[in-house]
């Protein structure tokens, strides 16, 4: 099983190499258009050496962390409130139903107009984009908390604060984590777009620069770095989730 997959993966990389090196020799299309692994590695080494890659990565990560962080705090707080207060939920719902289908990127220029070209517009845009799916996911997972668990806790003497801290939060925790993971993925998704438009640093800018200077190798390198970064962060979150949720997967006696 594993062997077949590894083989297929090697085949993918190999066919990239064959196509691009072959093209470089035969020049079927302009070799610049189909960067070889060597080209990509060279761009990568250059940008590592002069420190630009690290700067771009850090810039993007800081924007994502700030925007996502603000949205996560708001989403957890408001999600809990909305789930526990029926009237509030009913009043938030129509507004969210109205805003949600609008692709967030459609508001990106709006944020540039409102917050200027600096960091604020990117951070605010990421916060805006990631807030809604996280809020909806968190409110839903709080609403799904089994009422019987609350009854059990109340009959053991739990007051409202105990119920929230010791029952609602742990019971909704798996759902909250999933919502946060979705939000983080979305943040990485849209930061690229945000950095296409009027940024002078960040991985999105790096990729766009590759287009402006007609350097596809740089685009591929930027895309690969983003992919790696995303996989890495996701793997970390999944591992943390596993640790925190041992109670769900503990081996049966």
């Amino acid at each position: 099983m594993k062997g077949v997959r590894a083989l297929a993966l090697v085949a993918v990389l190999l066919s990239w190499a064959v196509v691009t090196y072959g093209n470089a020799r035969l020049e079927v299309v302009n070799p610049v258009l189909l960067p070889t692994p060597t080209d990509v590695a060279k761009v990568f080494a250059d940008s590592v050496r002069d420190g630009t890659l690290v700067r771009h990565i850090l810039t993007s990560l800081v924007r994502v962390a700030e925007g996502f962080g603000i949205a996560a705090v708001l989403a957890v707080g408001l999600g809990l409130l909305a789930a526990m207060c029926g009237p509030l939920r009913l009043m938030l719902e129509p507004v969210i139903e109205f805003v949600r289908p609008i692709p967030p990127l459609a508001f990106l220029p709006m944020f540039l107009v409102w917050f200027g070209l600096g960091e604020a517009s990117k951070v605010a845009f990421i916060a805006y984009t990631t807030f809604f799916p996280m809020f909806v996911g968190i409110a839903a997972s709080v609403l799904r908390v089994d009422v019987m668990l609350l009854r059990a806790a109340a009959s053991l003497g739990a007051q409202r604060v105990d119920l929230i801290r010791r029952v609602v939060l742990p019971a909704a925790f798996p759902g909250i984590i999933v919502a946060l993971r979705v939000g983080f993925g979305l943040a990485l998704f849209v930061i690229v777009g945000a950095e296409f438009m009027g940024a002078d640093a960040g991985l999105g800018h790096l990729i766009m620069e590759g287009r402006t200077f007609f350097n596809p190798a740089q685009i591929v390198m930027g895309a690969l770095v983003l992919g790696l970064l995303g996989s890495l962060v996701n793997a970390l979150l999944v591992a943390a989730e596993r640790r925190a949720l041992r109670w769900r997967t503990a081996q049966s006696a």
């Binding site: 019987m148 668990l149 009854r151 059990a152 806790a153 009959s155 029952v167 019971a171 109670w247 769900r248």
Partner: peptide, 14 residues
């Protein structure tokens, strides 16, 4: 008044 339910209702995370 302690309550024991048919569906046990243990806190699964504890």
């Amino acid at each position: 008044r302690g309550v024991v339910f048919q569906e046990y209702v243990l806190f699964p995370w504890l």
